[in-house]
């Protein structure tokens, strides 16, 4: 069940970060939009965590080292451009991943099919803001570029295969990438036959193209720095997190932990 935990933690942690915007957004419409995205993600997290165990026990009683979320989603909000850069990177990833899961016949297919509609909206919201900030004023351009740069190093970990969603050992998925352009039908059959199998290399190249297209349309430059930090890519999935995360959990868990066994 580590896949449900990984995907559930991504949604839970990013939802929490977006919840911090409430009452602080640059315009009322964004109060509504950011809360809306946060709520969608929280809903996804609750479904995914419930597949693993008790949602509240998992959210409130695990310590930092037991969380499996990407380091990207735990990064502090920063300014609006920083938040939007994080959202672009993650929403495009989540959208492409859920599309693939929904198309398969694995255990997440039903869940992903439902969530993919929400995530398509999140992705559109992020892309539209990248365009506006990138191609807005000189200041917004600069801020958007630095948001993209600052978070770039956390993007490599998204494509570390998640156990249970790995295509390794299944046939057909590798063929799907290889055969694109030759016979679409052969590729499609191959993918649907592979259950939850995700071709992570193919996912990564689809992500790079999508993000590049948006960034270029926004008159911005795709960052060129390394896509991993000092930790190996995929560290978040192993419970190795960045320093701001512990502080975030302390706030999130404090009340629940102060009343052991209470129900709310």
């Amino acid at each position: 069940m580590s896949a449900a935990l990984a995907l559930g933690d991504d949604a839970l942690v990013l939802s929490h970060r977006l919840g911090e915007w409430a009452g602080h957004a640059p315009v009322l419409e964004e109060e509504v939009a950011l809360a809306n995205i946060a709520l969608d993600l929280l809903g996804q997290a609750r479904v995914l965590l419930s597949l693993v165990g008790d949602e509240d026990e998992l959210a409130y009683l695990r310590e930092e080292r037991a969380f499996r979320n990407l380091q990207l989603v735990e990064q502090p909000n920063g300014d609006f451009a920083h938040t939007i850069a994080r959202q672009l990177y993650f929403s495009v990833y989540q959208h492409l991943l859920y599309e693939r899961l929904a198309a398969g016949d694995g255990e997440f297919a039903g869940l992903a099919a439902k969530a993919v509609k929400e995530v398509a909206y999140h992705r559109d919201h992020a892309e539209q803001w990248v365009l506006r900030l990138g191609d807005g004023t000189a200041e917004s351009h600069e801020r958007m570029q630095s948001g993209l740069e600052a978070l770039w190093r956390f993007t490599g970990e998204m494509f570390q295969p998640i156990e249970g969603l790995d295509a390794a050992g299944t046939t057909g998925t590798a063929g799907a990438t290889g055969t694109t352009g030759t016979t679409d039908t052969a590729g499609a059959t191959g993918t649907s036959g592979s259950g939850s199998g995700v071709d992570w290399a193919e996912l990564e190249s689809a992500w790079i193209s999508a993000v590049t297209a948006t960034v270029e349309r926004a008159t911005l430059t795709l960052p060129t720095g390394p896509r991993t930090g000092a930790w190996a890519a995929g560290a978040g999935r192993q419970g190795l997190h960045t320093e701001p995360f512990g502080r975030m959990l302390a706030e999130m868990q404090h009340l629940h932990r102060s009343h052991p066994g209470a129900s709310w």
Binding site: L12, E20, A22, E31, V32, A59, E251, M252, W264
Partner: peptide, 25 residues
């Protein structure tokens, strides 16, 4: 919002605050 003691309560509270922004609009 960031300290709500259960995920269900957190969702309810987020939805409520979102509604308030909508009412303002």
């Amino acid at each position: 919002i960031t300290r709500a003691p259960s995920l269900r309560r957190k969702a309810i509270l987020m939805a409520k605050v979102q509604d308030e922004a909508g009412h303002g609009l």
